[in-house]
Design a protein around this nucleic acid. Structure first.
Lengths: 139, 139
DNA sequence: ACCGTATTGACTATCATTATCAATAAGGTA
DNA sequence: TACCTTATTGATAATGATAGTCAATACGGT
């Protein structure tokens, strides 16, 4: 509630590099589509890592904050993560096999922005995800 | 694991009417915007009802299944419910005060459908929600 | 009024995620 | 290189939302 250290710019957390963070980053980038924190943890353990579950969660949260990862909630309420470039995009997800297709949706992007503006909302963000059954899983 | 009663058509649950179900339905329709199951339960209790939490969850789940209510997940992962007419629509939600505006989005509706089709997905559904800060909460 | 059973409610179980805290190690310094 | 400060880790407990259990209750047809 008071002015303390005049932290220069957005520099407040003197991060350290650890093999754990690299491991999570790497495992996430290897994964295809979205993975849950628990899945990532299992995978890492199966590969011989001794990383802790809490650390996986922590690292994932950091990656989201830094914009290096993307997350969405599965319909069962589980949080799913995905390594992510810088571009903002959405996903088309197969309900059966989990296959994910990235969608670029400039139109919808601006539509969302406009709708919000029309109603006097600012500082907007949105959630757009499409679920369906992919052709391979249809049979 | 075996064939038992050959339940005729989709008629398997001979619902009964109880004051509890009415209470939930009513409380839900009174609520403005989205409410969580726990909130509804509190409200009902505060109004003197002795309804159980489990019953609130059960009724809400039934309302969703029967299409009489709508649900979405808050960004904290909590499920929020809302009494809902038949029309499919989306929401613009104020991050600060929770005010909700219904959006009709035919364009986006069909866009989602098309994108899915283009990628060979069928039986699609989607999640589209816009979050922002409403004008009243801006100051 | 009576009876069969769907429904209730208190409680427990589950499951994902977060908080706790002592032990460890990253990385700057003498 | 040895040392020291403290960010980070990991095992585990805590939390919080939701689902399951089961005996007691009450709906609704007779």
């Amino acid at each position: 509630m008071s002015e303390q250290a005049p932290k220069s710019a957005a520099e407040a957390t003197p991060k350290r590099n650890t093999w754990q963070k690299d491991a999570v980053r790497h495992a996430l980038s290897e994964a295809t589509g979205f993975v849950s924190a628990q899945q990532l943890h299992s995978v890492l353990r199966n590969h011989g890592s001794t990383i802790g579950l809490a650390t996986v969660y922590r690292t994932l949260t950091d990656l989201i904050k830094s914009g290096d990862a993307d997350s969405l909630q599965s319909q069962e309420g589980e949080l799913l993560y995905r390594a992510c470039g810088t571009a903002h995009h959405h996903h088309l997800i197969c309900r059966v096999c989990g296959r994910t297709v990235e969608i670029e949706a400039d139109k919808v992007e601006s539509w969302a922005e406009n709708v919000a503006k029309e109603h006097g909302f600012s500082n907007t963000s949105h959630t757009i995800d499409i679920f369906g059954t992919c052709s391979a899983c249809l049979s």
